[in-house]
Design a protein around this nucleic acid. Sequence first.
DNA 1: ATCGCTCACGTGACCGCTAACATGAAAAGC
DNA 2: GCTTTTCATGTTAGCGGTCACGTGAGCGAT
Lengths: 353, 353
Amino acid sequence: MSDEGQLSLRKADSRRRSATRAVTMADVAQAAGVSTQTVSRALRDPRSVGPDTLARIEEAVRETRYVQNFAASHLASNRSMTVAAIIPTISASIFAETIQGLTDVLLPEGYQVFLGHTDYMAGREESLVRSFSGRRPDGFFIIGTRHTQETTALLKRTGVPVVESWSWTNRPVDMLVGFSNHAALMSVVDHLVGRGYRRLAFTGVMKPGDHRAKERLKGFQDAHERHFPGVTPRVVTVTSGPMVMATGVELLKLVREQHPDTDAVVFVSDVLASGALLACAGMGISVPKDLAITGFGNYDIAGQLTPGLTTIAIASRRIGTESANLLLRRMQGGDVENRTQDVGFELLVRGSA
Amino acid sequence: MSDEGQLSLRKADSRRRSATRAVTMADVAQAAGVSTQTVSRALRDPRSVGPDTLARIEEAVRETRYVQNFAASHLASNRSMTVAAIIPTISASIFAETIQGLTDVLLPEGYQVFLGHTDYMAGREESLVRSFSGRRPDGFFIIGTRHTQETTALLKRTGVPVVESWSWTNRPVDMLVGFSNHAALMSVVDHLVGRGYRRLAFTGVMKPGDHRAKERLKGFQDAHERHFPGVTPRVVTVTSGPMVMATGVELLKLVREQHPDTDAVVFVSDVLASGALLACAGMGISVPKDLAITGFGNYDIAGQLTPGLTTIAIASRRIGTESANLLLRRMQGGDVENRTQDVGFELLVRGSA
DNA sequence: ATCGCTCACGTGACCGCTAACATGAAAAGC
DNA sequence: GCTTTTCATGTTAGCGGTCACGTGAGCGAT
């Protein structure tokens, strides 16, 4: 009997997975003289246990240096307290504001944010959603509204709330916090035409997976057709290349080569437009007299240039916070009345156009 | 007997936690006619099972639409396959490049990256580390080398590899991928003095938790003392305010108010320096004749301005990839010979100084 | 023929926590 | 005074995987 006891003890010991066993809830429970369930309750909702019990547990947590294990919690409760976010790119991008807004709201509520980026590569999104699903996030945040069929199916199958953003669609997967890139570009064209510009060109880096850029181009083309029926719009794009100011300079040169009569250049992004605008001085181009220039995004630099860059301002951070709020309500069991939210855009008219 | 059987069945059913039970590994195992352990092996290392078994399992995964549950995996294996990253801020920052580099390396290896930001608030880091610890990350990536004692203790107690970055110290918590902000600023001062500038001023936004900014200031002061012993260096800083170009303009004005004789302004960041440089034209200041301007970070804009902005280039993305590589090696059980890695910096001399 | 070894796969015991239900005591209702 | 309700806490049975070990077949060496 005692031999067997020893044997099983040794056996249990040898099966231990980590050498220095971590502090568990059971240790805290023992120290506080309560059951693990009471500790669990105390940690999840302090008001659900008696005040003196709570004090003893808190003391026990402190003295044992207990750190809750979320994996076990997740497994037992089926709630991961995480949100998966999928964005095109983090670097030097306006999406960073959105993510900051998202985490600013979610973190205080106990939710962690997982970040994945597609680098505008079609197909990456699907594989990201697939691998993220294994972590069983309680919600998804995605930039963009165009996905592969399989991606949409995967998202729906998870059964958790999904927010798409930075674009617009009438048939969102679930919820939507965005605006119409198409309408934004139309307002740019309207403005240019109103100011007397007649030979408009659109230019930008158009990565295959960048649907927002495509929507902007479409908006440009449609507005152009409305103002100048039958006239082929000037469009100069490249499908690859870094989103940096130097690329904007290159594009400006391309536009002037291919369409020398152009009197207004509509850039798909402020980054490119700023590069071009800065280069104009050196190229002997007077803005906005010889050439009007517009951007998109209202980056910090847009208002600092001389002349200022006319552009479209987007409430980037707000897209993040609003999305987080929608997700939160749904994740906490509530319902959401308006599943789509239009944050709009604002045409900021400055000196460049 | 049969009654009891029914009872226990009913009971088990009523205790089911989710209404529509998700597909589990057991379902896949059954469909493929193997044990769950074999499915587990097939998923973790396909070569560890027979080829025909593997094929059956893969087919079963497809037809059941099985998605692995990482929480269960984490709990059982004690590996979360996640890395926690703590950065000052994501927005419009050069750290975004670092995070992009980090995830670019870690994601393909199956590791997810958790992101938290401190907004340069002292104390936030400790609470982030604390709450992140509950997720049991397999590694930590942190920007900065100065932490509260408790933070350091917490990090060490986790027992997982830690990479600190974007700074330098002789006593890292564990590993370090960084450079000396101090030395970088000294090289800036050396350059300015070498070019004949004599009345140098340092300016920037110095948030209380921004130790890198402090190191840069210290580097400026030390170099200044070496070149001009006994002369009090001109330092104009604000402790709050947004890191935007407009703030740079304000700071430039402050410097010229408080130290009208200044002939070179050293900014703590390119963002501020760029704003100032752009504003100089409107203020009738000729750069670099009347005033030299330097920045830090070699942001995209630095090379596009006229004159170009003299600045310090940091291999931001590389800090992320190198850190990821160090973490990976350690997380996969390997050892690392060089626990500290100096990525250095480069003084880029352009027209502004 | 025997032995030892590798290989492919199965068995049982957990990992650390929480849902659901159970229990006992105090407070409230009649 | 007795039942009902409320509140604080305990008990039991998993959540969905993986670890350590076991087993039996196949194979070459002795």
